[in-house]
Design a protein around this nucleic acid. Sequence first.
DNA 1: CTAGGGTTAG
Length: 520
Amino acid sequence: MPGKLPTRLLNICISSFCKLHRLDKAEAVLIDGIRLGVLPNVVTYNTLVAAYCRFVGIDAGCSVVHRMQVAGIRPNVITYNSLLAGASRQGQASVSLDLFEEMLKLGISPNLWSYNTLMHCFFRLGKPDEAYRVFHDIILSGLHPDPTSFNTLINGLCKNGYVDNALMLYKNLKRHQCQLELVTYNILIDGMCKVGRLKTARWILQELGNSGYVPDAITYTTIMKCCFRLRKFEEALEIFSEMKSRGYTFDGFAYCTVMGAFVKIGELKRAVDVAKAMLKSGIKLDIVFYNTLMNIYCKEGKVDAAFALLNEIEEKGLECNDYSHTILIDGLCKAGNIAGAQRHLQYLCSSGCKSNLVAFNSLINGMCKSGQVDYAVKIFKAMNMKDEFTYSSMVHNLCRKGRFRTASRLLLSCIKKGMNILKSSERVVLQGFLNSGFRREARKLQSKIRVPVVSGIRVDSVISCHRHQGQTKNFKPVFDVFTSESSRSCVPANWIVVDANDIETGEKETSYTPSYWSAV
DNA sequence: CTAGGGTTAG
């Protein structure tokens, strides 16, 4: 059996270099190995596929798969899982779907990891129904959901606005004595925090403790951020110092949260102080730290200083992300340099960056504010993606120019798309009609915008009867998930979307949409 | 090979 042991050594070597992000070295080792007669196997290529997907991109991952096929090695389920995850990370659902099909066609049957990844991918794309169908497929294909499946499901429900469904699922799992992980609690706490339900979040924190867990750095950061958003600054800062004393500020997350919060309320001096403290603490500076710092400079009106940081970022070997560029573009807009902002955005688009909605929103707003409303409308029309920020900007600025009919039309099409436009945007149009004597138009608009905010997914089955077997930390489903038709008698049928009041503690809490936060 | 916290716009 020549070559068996050397191949394992080759794989360990390649894997080590991949972990160090040194793909060039990994490739060199592969070439050397082949030259010495050490043949790579499926594990070798899977390692490379995973690394390329993570550090370069899905296309790079696919080309490694091609190389492996040329070398006469057939991809397996793990190969495809890496590709699926890569596509999911890049938000390319169609690619994920194609890969899934491709995998089936090749006779490779997906495993639980494949399904979990696919489910996560759909959730990230804002398609909870599709995601839930994947969850069903897990059951239908005879696999048992694992803790990650449920974590993904709970997280996806929260991130898509179904926090009460997520709570319900949590409750069901709990009722059936499933051992939940710390991650599960953190996911739920974050879900509650993001909609402003701090009381419920604290209740889950309690449950976390009751289950014998200790809150970790992630738990703390999550709750601290929520306190900031609810303007409970003393409480937030107390959490921050507790984190420091517990040794939970080993990375930049907490510092950047605090910096960001100070920037948001215009306390730039305090934000700078926190930045200095972070520099002094010796924590590794990452791109998020630099983004936050650039944002401070921009808000101080020192756009040049922000741009100057780009050199430092590059020297450190860090890579700018969408946030970096958006912060700079917005900085230019706010400084009145619309042309510069436009140039930077154009440069981004031409260098193959995928469209950056936030940057476009910034630009549109900046143009309007500098009096170029018509030009902004032109760009608005050309945009293929728009959100409530886009509409809000246009509606407000059109109203400022007295163009209420156009504003009204945009407002309605925004609502029709199911977006949460600011109440103040609705008001400004109505008020505009009234002030300029268009009473009929105002009434007509009012009747149209008073639409109830709707429903969630009606999930026609209930996760039920999963019982923890005791011996391991994994759940072992004892029964399957029932559909409402087949087991109406034994489980409560649908997940009902409960409105803002808390279903667990019974306490009244108002649930806010995310867009509300920035308006507070 | 899958899941959780930080940075952007109205």
